[in-house]
Computed example of a mutant assay.
Amino acid sequence: MDLDYKEIGKRIARRRKELGLKQSEVEERADLSQKYLSNIERSISIPSIEVIMRLAVALDTTPDEFLLGTQHYDTDNEWKNSSELLRNMSPKQLSLAKNFLVWLSEQDL
Rank of each mutant, 00 (worst) to 15 (best):
L94M: 08
V102A: 14
T61M: 04
I52G: 05
K17R: 15
S83D: 06
L85S: 04
A97E: 00
F66D: 09
S83K: 07
Q34L: 06
N99Q: 14
L32I: 10
R42P: 06
K92Q: 15
S43L: 05
I12H: 01
E28K: 15
S82C: 07
T70R: 12
A58S: 04
G20L: 01
S82Y: 12
S33E: 13
T62M: 05
I44Y: 10
L19Q: 12
E27K: 02
N39F: 10
D74C: 08
N77H: 13
E7V: 05
T75V: 09
E7N: 00
K98M: 12
D31S: 12
N77S: 07
E27A: 01
M1R: 03
Q107D: 02
H72R: 12
N81A: 11
E27S: 03
S82G: 08
E25P: 13
E27N: 03
E106S: 13
S105T: 10
P91C: 00
L67V: 14
R11E: 07
S33H: 12
A30H: 04
S33R: 10
A13N: 09
K22M: 14
M1L: 05
L3F: 02
E50P: 12
S105A: 05
E18D: 10
P63N: 10
A97I: 13
R54M: 08
Y5R: 00
N81V: 12
I46A: 03
N81C: 04
K92V: 08
I49V: 13
S90Y: 00
R29P: 10
D64K: 07
L85F: 15
E7Q: 06
R54V: 05
L86H: 01
D4T: 00
P47K: 03
L96T: 11
